[in-house]
Every structure is written in structure tokens, then in C-alpha cells.
Amino acid sequence: MSIQEKQQEIIDEFAIYDDWMDKYEYIIELGKSVPTLAPELKTKERLIEGCQSNVWLATEIKDGKMHFSADSDAIITKGIIGLLIHVYNNESPETVVQSDLFFISQIGLAEHLSPTRANGLLSMVKRMKTEALHSLSK
């Protein structure tokens, strides 16, 4: 499945919810299903501090593909992390660097990735792209 198709799949899944609370209930369920990052991986280097919630991001490159795992102290943040990881994982660094995350605004969650939200998510996406970019220059 291409990165575009993965995003479209999420948009379709969210289309069935017309109530905000249902949408968030789904994100929260997703957040609970995202594996917790092992404590030894929650290092200072991996921490992305937000004013409202914190995010930890671990990156691996296997067979030329990006593999992210991440965690947050807030469950809604973690649910959105789950979506981002699903979209980016198993993609090449080039794809991640060039990607446009159109699904976020389409499912009505753009506010969570706005610079004013300060929940660490925007910084996380930036760091995901930076890590992908670094792997290209190696």
C-alpha cells in the first residue's frame, strides 16, 4: 500500500464518525493499542517536550525503510502518534521526507499539529522527517 493509500484508508475509517466524541473515542482506543516504548528507550535524546504533553520518538532503519516507534504521556497524543507511525513505517526515507500528511486535516485533527498546540506532535513530525533526511545523507 502506498503512503497515499494508507492515508486515504484512515480518512475512510474516520468518515463513519460524525460526532466529535466518537472520533476521539476511536483515537483513544488506538492510543491504548500502540505499544508502550520500553523505559530504556525513553531517553532525554528521544524526548520531545511539549507544553501540554511529552512525546518520545525512537527511529530505526531496516532494509532501507523507516521504522518509528513512539510514546506519549497523553493518550490522545499517543493515538495520533499511532496514526502517524502507521503512515510512515515501512516507507523509504525519500518518501517520508517528501510526504504531505494530508490525512490529518481531512479527519479534522489539524489543530493537534498546529504550532500553537504545543503537544509535541508537530515537533515529532519534523523530527521524523529530519531523521529520514539524515539517513539519506549517510
Binding site: 476521539y24 490522545i76 497524543t77
Partner: peptide, 20 residues
């Protein structure tokens, strides 16, 4: 429960509180 999660869910129910 994280204050941010509570605040976000209250917001979606029309209630403005502050978290943090």
C-alpha cells in the same frame, strides 16, 4: 489520566478549561 486528554475531551463537549 493526563490533563491534556481531559481538557481535549471537555473541549469537544463545549467546555473551556485550562490544562497544564
Amino acid at each position: 489520566m493526563h490533563p491534556f486528554d481531559i481538557g481535549t475531551l471537555l473541549d469537544k463537549q463545549g467546555i473551556a478549561v485550562r490544562t497544564g
